[in-house]
Design a protein around this nucleic acid. Sequence first.
DNA 1: CTTGACCTTCCACTTGCTGGAACCCTTATG
DNA 2: CATAAGGGTTCCAGCAAGTGGAAGGTCAAG
Lengths: 128, 128
Amino acid sequence: MNIGDVAERSGLPAKTIRYYEDIGFIKPRRGLNGYRHFDEKELHKLAFIGRARSLGFTIEDCRSLLALYEDKERASADVKEIAKQNLKEIDAKIADLRAMHTTLTHLIEECAGDHRPDCPILKNLGEI
Amino acid sequence: MNIGDVAERSGLPAKTIRYYEDIGFIKPRRGLNGYRHFDEKELHKLAFIGRARSLGFTIEDCRSLLALYEDKERASADVKEIAKQNLKEIDAKIADLRAMHTTLTHLIEECAGDHRPDCPILKNLGEI
DNA sequence: CTTGACCTTCCACTTGCTGGAACCCTTATG
DNA sequence: CATAAGGGTTCCAGCAAGTGGAAGGTCAAG
């Protein structure tokens, strides 16, 4: 497979795949013309990374997960631990966003939204 | 006030304040020794930006808000519009995170978490 | 006089890509 | 055979929004 096929099948842009090679996730062989050639295994690895990224795992998380994925001796406890940590971070982000939501909603409600120059949103933001 | 005082009172790191000067948010005077000198107005502006940033407004949003904040002729409708747009984005982010949460929770539940090498999290991630 | 805290500038680095330029390779068509 | 489209390659620059660190100037206290 050339990079275009892998891009289509993995759902990742070709640019991103090259980037993932740069940072050492994959090492595809090269044809005589210099083109990258991918096998199914690399396709799976890329799909794996894509999924993990979309679940909010960082690149460094992916590195750990990939090491575990490839190591037949891996313990699922390790993976679970990483996932749990990730879940915690997701919860924290949700909490933050909810707080923002509440504050903003209040401000919007208080703001007349007509053309009067008095605006509680700006007022509130400027207070120390 | 020197930058340290402003940093403390606004809650922003000194580095960030210098950065905000770089990108044109503030233009503090300089003493003979080259030190920045801030007045209350700049302190308020910085606090304003800090609040807005923590509410998820981008730097560009802040630029608009600041322009409105400083313009006595501003219409609160404009501000409300920016805030509403922001609220929408916050909602979208929350929805995304909730989806991640659900998926991850399922995976974690299915994963034994003991030392057996079989792990549904990894399995699921690797599927195409 | 020296120490330590504070200030300055500048440059590099971060995360996770993305865009673009300039160029090579392959295949189909006139 | 020329050529044009549509792959592929490299490298360089840049995005947001700062952060870290080096090298050096300044100020107040002991």
